[in-house]
Deep mutational scan, measured.
Amino acid sequence: MASQGTKRSYEQMETDGERQNATEIRASVGKMIDGIGRFYIQMCTELKLSDYEGRLIQNSLTIERMVLSAFDERRNKYLEEHPSAGKDPKKTGGPIYKRVDRKWMRELVLYDKEEIRRIWRQANNGDDATAGLTHMMIWHSNLNDTTYQRTRALVRTGMDPRMCSLMQGSTLPRRSGAAGAAVKGVGTMVMELIRMIKRGINDRNFWRGENGRKTRSAYERMCNILKGKFQTAAQRAMMDQVRESRNPGNAEIEDLIFLARSALILRGSVAHKSCLPACVYGPAVASGYDFEKEGYSLVGIDPFKLLQNSQVYSLIRPNENPAHKSQLVWMACNSAAFEDLRVLSFIRGTKVSPRGKLSTRGVQIASNENMDAMESSTLELRSRYWAIRTRSGGNTNQQRASAGQISVQPAFSVQRNLPFDKPTIMAAFTGNTEGRTSDMRAEIIRMMEGAKPEEMSFQGRGVFELSDERAANPIVPSFDMSNEGSYFFGDNAEEYDN
């Protein structure tokens, strides 16, 4: 993207840094990872977990959730003011799984939030270390993106479920800051804005008074975040219109849905970061690795190297396929839920299948599930090659597409044709070009129609051997075009429920 120079890199967003050079960025990201790792080690000690239990991804998720809940100030305040039966607002906890007599047992633990905050700050040299908290939120978000298709949420806001490739980060909490905003897809931002506008339509006082002023500035800020994701002048001009509207209503909703559809071809720039579970960072720190000293990046080879040398386990339900569970977590670790499966298959070195073909449910185990038949197995999170994460949407291309997802959002900077089903997408653009945004709409449609099938995206960008740390010898991959490109292809993934 041309304006790259004016933006802070995501590592800076990730670490609240002012302008830093590459070495400083690597050190501050490393410091953040160190903090998460030290916190995780301490929690495993508190909970008396064995090494194996500490490497269980379900335990990692519970521990991450506990610290996120302990620092969720708004919710904590709300819980104190609106006490609900049987919930102690000062405590947080969740299921911890232990191996007892050759069987997995679930144990519900409860801790004072104050105590968890103390352990977290102690692991982070006394700081609140917001960057580390956001990092864990993005890992949870990436896992949700890989596990669930947001059909219901899309339909509720009037969008087409086939636009799911635009929904990265749709389950990120509001408090995820600049680093969170960077990884949100165009569809996620559109959905947040539509929800806001709908509230304004239904509630006369939404934009009024002292609160209304705050609401208005939040609305304009979200519009600017979305505008910054678009790469064409016409899309940005249309966002200006939406932002400046005196009284946002149905016309703005129409414009936003139009823009979301246009992003299936004229893709937005959305950041991709490899955020790993805390149970990967903990053992690495415990083994003596100093992330701050060595430096770390979320968008280069580092996460690949770390996963190459990590042992992570997962509980497996009786009829689940461990290899499929591994694929789910591998995609989440690489922030690749909406990437082209052919690119992923090449990088991973084994075939990556669409969601609907995987015999696996989510990673988390519900409290009512029976533990008797639970097994555990090693997650295979290694890769054959590594590639640089991208934040450009890439230019655009036609490809055989599917009944489910009709476009992709690249996660890796790797040369390819970008699949999208042009006739299906263009069919949504018939007729409606009147109104105050008509010239911009016409211009956007013209650009979409001009998108050429034979153009290559990320020209000359390749993948790298894991021994090639400096990215000196790019390998331009070859793809098996007979395979499906979309992950949520004609899909039956479970729906995400809060």
Results as ranks from 00 to 15, higher is better:
140 H>S: 05
360 T>G: 04
190 V>W: 13
269 S>H: 10
426 M>R: 01
370 N>H: 15
316 I>P: 08
74 R>K: 15
492 N>K: 15
28 S>I: 04
295 G>L: 10
321 N>C: 14
443 E>M: 10
267 R>C: 12
77 K>G: 00
299 V>Q: 10
374 M>D: 10
302 D>F: 09
276 L>I: 12
380 E>D: 15
490 G>E: 09
78 Y>D: 15
174 R>N: 07
478 S>P: 14
149 Q>N: 04
448 M>L: 15
141 S>D: 13
211 N>R: 12
189 M>A: 01
134 T>M: 10
373 A>R: 05
168 Q>A: 15
228 G>D: 10
217 S>N: 04
254 E>Q: 05
123 A>T: 07
183 V>D: 07
365 I>M: 06
212 G>D: 08
344 L>C: 13
55 R>S: 15
437 T>K: 03
219 Y>K: 10
54 G>E: 14
195 R>E: 10
376 S>V: 15
206 F>H: 04
356 G>K: 06
370 N>L: 12
86 G>A: 00
382 R>V: 06
34 D>Y: 01
136 M>Q: 04
139 W>G: 09
376 S>I: 05
111 Y>M: 15
9 S>P: 07
383 S>N: 08
173 P>H: 05
70 A>N: 09
466 L>R: 03
11 E>C: 10
302 D>I: 09
456 M>E: 06
157 T>R: 04
265 I>S: 05
22 A>G: 08
432 N>I: 01
307 L>T: 08
141 S>T: 12
20 Q>M: 07
389 R>V: 02
32 M>C: 13
143 L>F: 05
214 K>L: 05
101 D>S: 00
226 L>P: 07
422 K>L: 00
199 R>W: 13
230 F>C: 05
261 R>V: 12
287 S>A: 10
6 T>M: 11
325 K>F: 11
261 R>K: 09
396 T>K: 00
237 A>F: 10
187 G>Y: 10
387 A>S: 06
41 I>Y: 09
91 K>M: 09
3 S>P: 08
493 A>R: 14
277 P>K: 04
210 E>D: 15
44 C>W: 01
273 K>G: 07
314 S>K: 12
1 M>W: 10
491 D>V: 03
125 N>H: 04
206 F>N: 07
115 E>A: 03
209 G>R: 13
288 G>C: 13
